[in-house]
């Protein structure tokens, strides 16, 4: 007993010195972390905290924010019908763009994964190219092609006798949004194809060989091997695609600027207009506190959606692990 106590009393100061000794021994590690940490605090942590704080002020963006209004900005965002219109549009965009492009990307990835197919690298490059490009620049080029005056897309469709008269793709409220969704699908299909390819290549080939020996057909292998095994990867791809499409900005800004008559206004263009450009809704003024409140609200919404999906992913992963253990 006695000796034990003694040991403890000896041990205690040793432990305490041990902490500082550990710090001293690892000084170089702290040095290595310094540049990253400084940048992270200045351009990651501080802006995030400040973005919460700006929400509490009515502020035009010029000078320092001084008019404290509490949560009034949130109340205004929630009661603004234009916000909800943009909010709805963002979700409509995601609701159409994500399922269609993921379906096409999966089909394309499976096609380009076929063993006998030649020229895979070329096809992969072709379908992947738009994903690498600046969305703003893609928007400029497609804006020219979709022009109602001498746009080449109308010209083609008239030439092929599909339409008789040129369509104002981006100027007509009925066609503007579907057109933007189509452009969005075209632009992001390639990256999801690459993601799916990675998932497909991770499936062990033996599974297919064994299944083939058992006399299964291609369709059975698709439903019993391929689809179940890429499900966890699929959910990560789904999360990334959802976040990306709910935050769609450049394509809309460049192609329609949210028009005609707010038909294509999404949350990100709505925020941009209030924060920087001014809009008719705000009487041409910029309202940074209000825009920040809208941004934070959208951020929370997207986060909640992602959180829900992460929960599903982990549950499925656990189920799959149990399945393999058996």
């Amino acid at each position: 007993m006695n000796t034990e106590k003694k040991e403890l009393s000896i041990n205690y100061p040793v432990k305490k010195r041990g902490f500082w000794q550990q710090v001293k021994e690892n000084l170089s590690a702290y040095t290595f972390l310094t540049p990253m940490t400084l940048a992270w605090v200045a351009f990651g942590l501080y802006p995030m905290i400040a973005s919460y704080w700006i929400v509490l002020y009515e502020w035009s963006g010029i000078g320092e924010p001084t008019r404290y209004v509490g949560l009034a900005n949130f109340a205004r965002v929630i009661s603004d019908p234009f916000f909800w219109k943009a909010f709805r549009n963002s979700f409509i965009y995601a609701g159409f763009q994500v399922p269609i492009q993921l379906f096409l990307a999966l089909v394309l990835a499976m096609t380009l994964n076929l063993k006998w197919l030649k020229g895979k690298a070329v096809f992969r490059t072709i379908f992947f190219l738009p994903s690498l490009m600046s969305r703003a620049i893609i928007g400029l080029v497609l804006g020219l092609m979709l022009s109602p005056f001498n746009g080449v897309i109308n010209e083609w469709l008239i030439h092929l006798h599909i339409i008789k008269q040129g369509i104002d793709w981006l100027g007509d409220p009925r066609t503007a949004f579907p057109t933007i969704i189509a452009v969005g699908i075209w632009q992001t299909l390639g990256i999801n194809m690459i993601y799916f390819s990675a998932g497909l290549q991770a499936i062990p080939n033996e599974l297919y060989e064994v299944a083939a020996l058992d006399g299964s057909n291609a369709l059975q292998r698709l439903f019993h091997i391929t689809l179940p095994l890429i499900r966890p990867v699929f959910l990560i791809i789904l999360i990334l695609a959802l976040i990306g499409s709910l935050n769609v900005f450049e394509l809309v800004l460049v192609l329609t600027y949210g028009g005609p008559y707010y038909a294509t206004e999404v949350v990100q263009t709505y925020i941009y207009k209030f924060a920087f450009a001014g809009t008719e809704i705000s009487g041409g003024r910029t309202e940074v506190g209000f825009a920040s409140a809208a941004a934070l609200l959208m951020g929370i919404m997207v986060l909640a959606l992602t959180g829900l999906q992460v929960l599903i992913v982990t549950r499925l992963r656990r189920k799959r692990a149990e399945y393999f253990e058996m």
Binding site: V23, N26, G44, M48, A275, V288, L303
Partner: peptide, 29 residues
Amino acid sequence: FPGRKIYIGGAVVMMFLPHGLTVIPVFML
């Protein structure tokens, strides 16, 4: 080194926190 776990944990937590309009504070800075 001491603080390593807190550092990594903090980084991961921050990635998942909602961000408001961070471009304005960056501009101010």
